[in-house]
Nucleic acid binder design. Structure first.
Length: 575
RNA sequence: GGGCCUGUAGCCUAGUCUGGACAGGGCGAUAGCCUCCUAAGCUAUAGAUCGCGGGUUCGAAUCCCGCCAGGUCCGCCA
């Protein structure tokens, strides 16, 4: 798949390289995008000054003089130390519009790479419903999945299921030893909400009653030893929770391809292989019967730099099993991506070091996100101090419904308004979470989460709806388009934005930066709104121009729809 | 005590990896725009010691060092 703007950039790069080698300047060609009106691409010459022993301004002039005219270059100018390239707009306009209208749903998507990526995300303890503190995980993860697919990879998403830990053992004990009437009453009928009360009460009892604590310890020990009965007991306890979590994920357009239980790696003995390999490492030590790796030589600092991977009772730990999981993943993929909370940074580093020690061929690329906190502090399932994802989803949809009703209550049916509210509410939720870089802390505030104006999903969805509205009223067929007639600044700027989409996808994938997609879409929608103001489409008398504008409207619709799809957001035809 | 992450207008944020043309946006504020394709929109104005202090460089929000503040981790937990 070759896209116009990318093609133009390649041409400029290669012509530049040619000139630089003629002048015998040895440097990398890094193109910048200049500010408004100064061209489409720019090459700064500052760094050449010491090599050429000339002022950067003169170097820029020398280079500009020697650049040949190519298929894409219309004009080369200098501005101080910059060589500015102007792309042939006629060519760019026609080929961009053509590319979009031909490719439709695939516009922006990159050529197939024949490589498989496993994206691990969410992997939450199945002891209760998902809460907002970790809401970034599935949303970032799913967006990454979609971006990698668009960038040409085969992608599988995995949820690593912790079925051996203390958290699920507490839940299992609770479900099997407590009465329904004694546990806190849930607000939702979803199975995860119905079950979490048992966990909360059991957790409290464990703190007070040593007998309870001991029984829970037994469950943990037996499942870590791989005893099937214990694993089944735990499985039956968390199954409804997982079902509920999955429902929540589906509700926000997230589908997990595979749930991978931790116990798999105990049962198939692959974790024993990891233990044996690690024991052979020269960094391995033994202390009171337990085996550890010394992490200090690897730059890990702190009070305790020992990474214990085998307890004195011979059972493995979470991180040990995680190593086995990663070895297994590496066998089935060409690239691994994990989305983890920042609290997992050390564990992840330990796993990475251990993977290198056991000779793993692949180290995962990890995206860490900071927590979403409540204004008063951290969320906690155990203490019930939480805003659940389901609360947030419901509130967003409800608020969206109020907005729709306020604006369109007189013209739309109840059913239609509900449909639109669902698309907008969930879009707003996903957008608000993804638009911020993962590593920034977020303090959760309702008024921000429920923002429906400005840089938010409804703004973009609204532009899409506007485009659809125009297209639904058109009398003409969009064919024999002459995009060169689109000469208003608003039109040219819009087309240039649309032309950048494939590059945006590539960058977002390369840098694992899902938030760059939201920024781009906001710019597209904003530019479309300016076009909408400046260039009436349907009232335009000139047939050729009207059809050209219709083609541009349709092209914008396609880019917004494809872009929102990358974010797992539905593009409504009306709102 | 130590490691890692974050710090950009009243609030939120892009840009930081890969140094470059006046630090882009949004919310909120103020002032305008619906006999015209959906005003969830558009235009204009005001608002920034880029946490603080040094350094490197022709050039630093961006790189280096020190400090301050917030988050997070330093379990034979997960």
């Amino acid at each position: 798949m070759i896209y116009p703007l990318d093609d133009a950039r390649k041409e400029i790069t290669s012509l530049l390289k040619k000139v630089l080698s003629q002048l015998e300047y040895d440097c990398k060609v890094k193109l910048e995008i200049p500010p408004g009106g100064l061209g489409d691409f720019a090459f700064p010459c500052f760094s050449l000054a010491p090599i050429a022993k000339k002022s950067p301004n003169d170097i820029a002039k020398d280079i500009a003089k020697k650049i040949e005219k190519g298929k894409w270059i219309e004009k080369v100018e200098t501005n101080g130390a910059y060589v500015n390239f102007f792309i042939d707009n006629k060519n760019l306009k026609n080929s961009t519009i053509k590319s979009i209208l031909i490719n439709q749903k695939n516009y922006g998507y990159l050529a197939k790479k024949n490589k498989k990526v496993i994206v691990e995300h969410t992997s939450a303890n199945p002891n209760g419903p998902l809460h907002v503190g970790r809401a970034r995980n599935p949303i970032i993860g799913d967006t990454i999945v979609r971006i990698f697919k668009a960038a040409g990879y085969n992608v599988e998403s995995q949820f690593y299921l912790d079925d051996m830990g203390k958290q699920v053992a507490i839940l299992a004990w609770g479900v099997n030893n407590l009465e329904l009437k004694d546990v806190p009453k849930p607000e939702y009928s979803k199975p995860d909400h119905q079950t979490v009360g048992f966990y909360q009460l059991a957790s409290t009892l464990m703190g007070k009653d040593e007998k309870v604590s001991k029984q829970i310890g037994e469950i943990v020990k037996k499942s870590e030893e791989g005893e099937q009965k214990a694993i089944d007991l735990v499985h039956d306890a968390y199954a409804p929770v997982l079902k509920g979590i999955n429902e929540s994920l589906n509700h926000i357009n997230i589908a997990v391809d595979k749930y991978v239980p931790e116990s798999n790696f105990v049962r198939d003995k692959s974790v024993d292989f990891v233990v044996e390999k690690l024991k052979q490492s020269k960094y391995c030590g033994k202390e009171e019967g337990a085996f550890y790796l010394d992490m200090e030589p690897f730059g890990i600092q702190g009070r305790n730099t020992k990474f214990v991977f085998l307890r004195k009772d011979g059972t493995t730990l979470y991180a040990t099993r995680d190593i086995a999981y990663h070895l297994w993943k590496a066998k089935h993929a060409d690239l691994l991506v994990n989305v983890l909370g920042e609290d997992h940074k050390l564990e992840s580093k330990q796993v990475e070091i251990a993977l290198n020690l056991v000779g793993a061929k692949m180290i995962p690329r990890v995206i860490f996100y900071s927590f979403v906190s409540l204004p008063g502090g951290k969320m906690s399932t155990r203490r019930g101090r939480v805003v659940y994802i389901d609360d947030l989803i419901d509130e967003c949809v409800k608020r969206a419904y109020d907005e729709v009703k306020k604006r369109r209550g007189k013209e739309l049916s109840e059913k239609k308004m509900k449909e639109i509210a669902e698309k907008i509410g969930i879009g707003a939720l996903r957008y608000n979470i993804i638009k911020v870089q993962p590593e920034k802390d977020i303090a959760f505030k309702w008024e921000e989460a429920l923002n429906f104006e400005g840089n938010a999903s409804p703004f973009i969805q609204y532009s899409h709806a506007r485009a659809c509205s125009i297209l639904s009223k058109k009398q003409d067929e969009i064919k024999d388009v002459d995009a060169t007639l689109l000469n208003h600044d608003s039109e040219i700027d819009l087309i240039k934005k649309l032309a950048r989409f494939p590059i945006v996808i590539d960058d977002a994938c390369e840098g694992c930066k899902p938030h760059s997609i939201t920024n781009y879409l906001f710019e597209v929608a904003s530019q479309f709104n300016q076009f909408y103001r400046d260039c009436p489409v349907l009232p335009e008398k000139n047939n050729k121009l009207r059809i050209g504008r219709l083609a541009l409207v349709d092209s914008t619709r396609i880019v917004i729809q494809n872009g929102l799809d990358l974010l797992g957001i539905v593009a409504p035809e009306e709102m």
